[in-house]
Amino acid sequence: MSPITEYIVSALLIVGGAFTLVGAIGLARLPDFFTRLHGPTKATTVGVGAIMLSSVIYFSSHGFGISEILITVFLFMTAPVSANMLAKAAMHMGVKSMKGTQGNPWEQ
């Protein structure tokens, strides 16, 4: 592996790990359910996407990594759906939103 690809793979790994960590920090730190929903659906998805990309580049000498692409596309397609389902479930159960939230969730 040439040094340039090594640098690219390392940078993508670090970026991916950092985003995954930020998503988890958001999940642990943010005050209510609806704000917590933001961390995992995006930061974690983007983080895993970056790690996948680094894997694709790392294994590029063994042929094109179609499994990684499939996993990434699948994650990007399903993240909004599960976030939406969870938001609906939370609204149905009447989960409290934090103080200072403008507007109201709908009655289910």
Binding site: G17, T20, G39, P40, T44, T45, I51, L75
Partner: peptide, 9 residues
């Protein structure tokens, strides 16, 4: 949900 995504990573 987040945990399984982390497991994939």
């Amino acid at each position: 949900d987040t945990l399984y995504i982390n497991a994939i990573a």
